[in-house]
Design a protein around this nucleic acid. Structure first.
Length: 828
DNA sequence: AGCACGCCGACT
DNA sequence: GTCGGCGTGCTC
C-alpha cells in the first residue's frame, strides 16, 4: 500500500468562514505519524502563522493548486489524539446537528489542551545600533521597549508601544537582523509534575555517610535516617515528615547521596476513600435481563436495548454485572448518568465494584483532573468511564458497551454547539464500533418507548422492586378542596399531619418543589404590573435570604421595589412559592426539626452536594426540602415520607413535553420513599387532580400514561411522529431581528421549493414569531419552527446549512445570530 | 476571526 | 518619504 501524501486538516479557528478542511502535504519524515485523529501544527494564512489542527482525512490526490499547498510543520506527539472511529463519529455529528468541525472536535477533547503558538521577540543587536541602523520611529520604539523589558510577545509590544499596524515594522527589523523570533508552543493544561527523592546509597553505607555529614547538620542526618529503608519518597512528604527545608535536601544531592527528580503525577478525580461494593444476587428478572443482553452481544455485536424498570428494580446491579462480563471479553464500557445524579453515591458503586478500572468525567472536575482522566482512558489504564453527557466521547479503542441511565433526562441533550443528543450519538457510536447500547429508565421518554414498541430497541421490562416491596402509595390531595375548607397554607392537613407524625417517629421526610427562591413573581395588586428583568422577558424571583430579586435566566439581581414602578402604588405583593418559602414555613411549623434546603442556591460550592448527602445518610437531617435535584438516584432507607408541594408547576408550561416531564418527575420523586425496610408514603398536592399525568403517576402506571400521551402526540403531530427543528434568530436591535427572521424564513421556503417543489412542507413552517421568552440577556428572539418527517430531515438540514452560510456572507444585518436546534428537548 | 495588503490623506 | 486608518478579501 502506498502512503497517502496529503492530509485534510481542521484548523483551530472559531470563525465559521474557516471551518472547512484544508489540504496540507505531508513531509516524508511524518509519513508514519500523520494519521487520522492526530494533532498537527500547520502554517496558516498569509503570515503562515502556526496553528493547531487535527487530521480528519488522508488522501492521495487533491484539486488544490500545487503552489497553494503547504506542508505540515509538526505532527504533535501528544497523548491527546482521537481514534479514526471518533473522527468518523464527529463528522456524523457535524452533519446531523449543523455544527462546525472545530466545535465538534473541541467537545471530544479535554478542554484546555489546544496548543497555542506564541512568538517571542528578542534583540540580536546592541543598544547603540538602535539609533544609527534604524530610521523608522516605530522601529526605534520597539527596540527601546525590548531593551527595557527583554524578550516579549507581539501582543505585549503592541499594547506597550501603542502601534496599531505593527507587523511592517517588525518585519523590517527582522529583515535587518536586529531582532529574532522564537516560537514556543504551550497549552492551558499540562501534565502535573512533582519532585521525588531517590536514595543513592545502600544500607551498609549508612553509618559511613552519617559520619561524613558535619556534626551540626542535624537535619541532613535526619533525612538520611528517614530515607534509609525507602527507595523513593516524594519531596513534599519528606519535607513534612522531617520538617526540613529544601536546602538540606539539595546539599545531600550535591554530596551524591540523593537524587531529586521530577516525575509526572496523576491528579485524582476520585478523592474519597472507596469501599468495596459487593456483588449482589440477581433476581430472576434481573438475570433474564443480563442474559438477554449478553447473549445478544456475543452473537450479534451492535444492538440497542431499553430497560424499563420501576424505581428500585435494581438496574444498577444489572449494569454492573454486564460490565463485568464485557470486561472479561477484553472490552470497555461507558456509563452515562445525568450530571445532577453524578453524585458520589453513583461513583461509589462503580468504583466500589471495579476499583481502579474506573475513570470519572463530569463538570465538577478541574481541567487538569479531566485531562488526566481522559489520558487514563486513552492509554488503556482504565476500562470503564462513568460520566455525564460528554463522557459519550470517552476515547476507548475497544468499546463493547454504552449504558445510558435515566435515559429520559433532558441533560443528555446539549444546549450549546454542537447541540447533540447523547442517546443518538451513543446509537451511532455503537453502530460504528460494533458495541451494545443500553438505555435504562423507570420512566422512559415517550420517544424511546415508542422506538422500543416499534422494534428499533429491544424492550426489557422489570416490573418489580428487588426487595419485593410494593411501590409507595401516592395520595393525591386536591388543593382546591383544601382552600374551600379554609386552609390557605401551602400544606394540606394530610401533609401537615404526616410530617408531624414522621418527625415524632424519627423518620426522614423529603419535601419537593420544583421552584427555587422565595416567591416566583412580584406584582402590583393595584395595576397588575409584574416586575421583570431589565435584560430578559422574565418575571423576577424573590430571594428572601438576601432580600433581592433574581433573574433565573441571566443571573442579574435587583433590589425589590417599595412602590410599583408603573403606578407608584404601595401595594406590592409577592406571589407564588419557592423552596425558600417552604423552608421558612416548615421551620415555623416544626421548630424542633432539623431542616435543610437543597437547590441550586445552596449547592453552588464544590462538595456541598456531598455534605448534604452525608448528613442525610447519617440521619442528622429530619426534613430535606429540594428541587428536582433531589429527585434522582438518592437512596435513603430511612425516608418514609415524600411530600410534593405543588405537582402542577411543570404541568402548565406551554410545551409539548410538559405532561411527560410532570409524570417523570412525580414518579421519580415518589420513588424516593420506602426504599428501606419501612413502608413509604407519598403525598401529592395539586390543583388538577384529574390530569392524566397525575392520575397515572398516582398508580405508577407508566403504560397508561404512555398510551394516553402517544395518542396526543400522534393527534397533534409531535415527536416521535415528527422531527422538530427550532431556529432562533436573535439580536439586540428589535427591528433588525424582525426583518432578518422574516428574510430567513422566506429564504428557507424558497430553497425548499427549489429543491422539492413540496408546498405541503413549506406550509408546515411555523413563524417567524416571537420566541416564548422574547428577550434574554438583552437580545430579542424570534423563532421559526419546522416539523419534519424523518425522511425529509436531511433535506431540511441541507437547506438550513445553505441559508445559514448565505446570510452570514451577505450580512444583511449586523449582530444577528441564528441558532438552529434539531429536536430540542423543549421548544421554549 | 485574524491578518496582510493596498490605497489614501496627513504630517514631517 | 513615512505613518496610521480603514476597507477588502483570503486562509490549503
Amino acid at each position: 500500500m502506498t502512503c497517502k501524501i496529503f492530509a485534510e486538516v481542521v484548523v483551530d479557528n472559531t470563525s465559521s468562514s474557516t471551518d472547512k478542511l484544508f489540504t496540507y502535504s505531508i513531509p516524508s519524515k511524518y509519513e508514519k505519524d500523520a494519521k487520522i485523529g492526530r494533532k498537527v501544527l500547520v502554517p496558516f494564512g498569509r503570515g503562515n502563522k502556526l496553528v493547531e489542527g487535527m487530521i480528519i482525512n488522508l488522501i492521495n490526490h487533491t484539486d488544490v493548486d500545487f503552489d497553494r499547498l503547504k506542508p505540515i510543520k509538526t505532527v504533535l506527539h501528544d497523548s491527546i489524539f482521537l481514534s479514526e472511529n471518533l473522527i468518523k463519529l464527529s463528522l456524523w455529528i457535524k452533519d446531523m446537528y449543523m455544527a462546525q468541525y472545530s466545535e465538534v472536535i473541541k467537545t471530544m477533547m479535554p478542554s484546555g489542551t489546544t496548543n497555542k503558538v506564541i512568538e517571542l521577540i528578542s534583540l540580536t543587536c546592541k543598544e547603540e545600533d538602535i539609533y544609527h541602523k534604524v530610521k523608522s520611529k516605530n522601529g526605534i520604539k520597539i527596540l527601546e521597549y525590548l531593551f527595557k523589558y527583554g524578550e516579549s510577545d507581539l501582543q505585549k509590544i503592541k499594547e506597550a508601544t501603542g502601534i496599531t499596524n505593527i507587523n511592517p515594522s517588525i518585519n523590517l527589523l527582522l529583515k535587518n537582523s536586529l531582532i529574532q523570533i522564537d516560537k514556543r508552543i504551550s497549552a492551558e493544561v499540562n501534565k502535573k509534575y512533582e519532585k521525588f527523592i531517590y536514595k543513592k546509597f545502600s544500607g551498609k553505607d549508612r553509618d559511613n555517610i552519617l559520619g561524613n555529614i558535619a556534626p551540626n547538620a542535624t537535619k541532613q542526618k535526619e533525612i538520611i535516617k528517614y530515607i534509609q529503608d525507602k527507595e523513593v519518597v516524594s519531596l513534599k512528604e519528606l519535607m513534612i515528615d522531617t520538617n526540613c527545608s529544601l536546602s538540606s535536601v539539595k546539599s545531600l544531592e550535591e554530596k551524591g547521596y540523593l537524587k531529586i527528580e521530577e516525575i509526572e503525577v496523576r491528579r485524582e478525580a476520585i478523592t474519597k476513600e472507596i469501599h468495596l461494593y459487593k456483588k449482589l444476587d440477581l433476581t430472576k428478572d434481573q438475570q433474564k435481563c443480563v442474559d438477554a443482553i449478553y447473549n445478544d452481544y456475543v452473537e450479534n455485536g451492535f444492538n440497542k436495548f431499553l430497560i424499563h424498570g420501576v424505581t428500585g428494580s435494581g438496574k444498577t446491579e444489572i449494569y454492573l454485572q454486564l460490565i463485568e462480563k464485557i470486561l472479561d471479553m477484553g472490552k470497555e464500557a461507558i456509563v452515562l448518568v445525568p450530571e445532577i445524579s453524578l453524585t458520589p453515591q453513583t461513583v461509589e458503586r462503580f468504583a466500589g465494584r471495579f476499583k481502579n478500572k474506573v475513570a470519572v468525567l463530569h463538570s465538577g472536575l478541574s481541567y487538569g483532573e479531566r485531562y488526566d482522566e481522559w489520558r487514563k482512558i486513552k492509554a488503556g489504564e482504565v476500562q470503564i468511564a462513568v460520566g455525564a453527557r460528554s463522557a459519550i466521547f470517552a476515547p476507548f479503542d475497544n468499546l463493547g458497551l454504552i449504558i445510558i441511565d435515566e435515559e429520559h433526562e433532558t441533560s443528555y441533550k446539549s444546549s450549546i454547539n454542537p447541540k447533540y443528543n447523547a442517546i443518538e450519538v451513543g446509537e451511532k457510536r455503537c453502530e460504528i464500533e460494533n458495541a451494545t447500547l443500553i438505555l435504562g429508565s423507570a420512566t422512559p421518554s415517550i420517544e424511546s418507548y415508542y422506538k422500543a414498541k416499534e422494534g428499533e430497541y429491544k424492550l426489557l421490562e422489570l416490573p418489580n422492586r428487588v426487595n419485593n416491596k410494593s411501590l409507595p402509595k401516592i395520595e393525591v390531595i386536591d388543593m382546591k378542596t383544601e382552600l374551600d375548607n379554609g386552609n390557605k397554607s401551602m400544606f394540606s392537613n394530610e401533609l401537615y399531619n404526616a410530617i408531624r407524625d414522621n418527625l415524632n417517629n424519627k423518620k426522614q421526610t423529603i419535601l419537593f418543589l420544583n421552584r427555587r427562591g422565595f416567591s416566583t413573581f412580584v406584582s402590583c395588586r393595584k395595576c397588575g404590573f409584574v416586575v421583570k428583568c431589565k435584560e430578559c422577558d422574565i418575571a423576577l424571583t424573590y430571594h428572601g435570604a438576601q432580600n433581592i430579586l433574581k433573574c433565573h435566566y441571566c443571573g442579574y439581581t435587583f433590589k425589590p421595589p417599595t412602590v410599583c414602578p408603573s403606578c407608584q402604588s404601595k401595594y406590592i405583593k409577592y406571589f407564588g412559592i419557592g423552596t425558600q418559602k417552604v423552608e421558612d414555613e416548615v421551620k415555623k411549623l416544626f421548630p424542633q426539626g432539623r431542616i435543610v434546603r437543597m437547590d441550586m442556591d445552596t449547592t453552588s460550592t464544590k462538595g456541598s452536594h456531598e455534605r448534604i448527602f452525608e448528613k442525610m445518610k447519617k440521619g442528622s437531617i429530619d426534613i430535606l426540602i429540594g428541587t428536582q435535584m433531589i429527585s434522582k438516584g438518592l437512596d435513603f432507607p430511612n425516608v418514609t415520607l415524600v411530600g410534593i408541594i405543588a405537582a402542577d408547576t411543570t404541568l402548565n408550561i406551554p410545551d409539548f413535553k410538559a405532561s411527560e416531564r410532570t409524570f417523570q418527575l412525580l414518579t421519580q420523586v415518589g420513588g424516593r420513599a420506602g426504599r428501606g425496610e419501612y413502608e413509604g408514603r407519598v403525598i401529592l398536592q395539586t390543583y388538577e387532580p384529574d390530569h392524566y399525568s397525575i392520575l397515572t403517576a398516582q398508580y405508577h402506571d407508566y403504560i397508561s400514561f404512555y398510551e394516553k400521551e402517544i395518542s396526543i402526540r400522534k393527534a397533534f403531530d409531535y415527536p416521535p411522529f415528527t422531527n422538530i427543528v427550532s431556529i432562533i434568530v436573535s439580536g439586540e436591535n428589535e427591528k433588525d431581528v424582525f426583518e432578518s427572521s422574516k428574510q430567513i424564513a422566506n429564504k428557507i421556503k424558497e430553497d425548499i421549493i427549489k429543491e422539492t417543489n413540496d408546498l405541503d412542507l413549506v406550509n408546515k413552517i411555523i413563524g417567524p414569531m416571537e420566541a416564548p421568552i422574547y428577550r434574554i440577556k438583552g437580545r430579542f428572539r424570534r423563532q421559526i419552527i419546522i416539523k419534519i418527517k424523518e425522511s425529509r430531515l436531511s433535506l431540511i438540514i441541507k437547506v438550513l446549512d445553505r441559508v445559514n452560510k448565505e446570510s452570514r456572507t451577505k450580512n444583511y444585518f449586523e449582530n444577528i445570530r441564528i441558532s438552529t436546534d434539531i429536536n430540542p428537548v423543549s421548544i421554549i
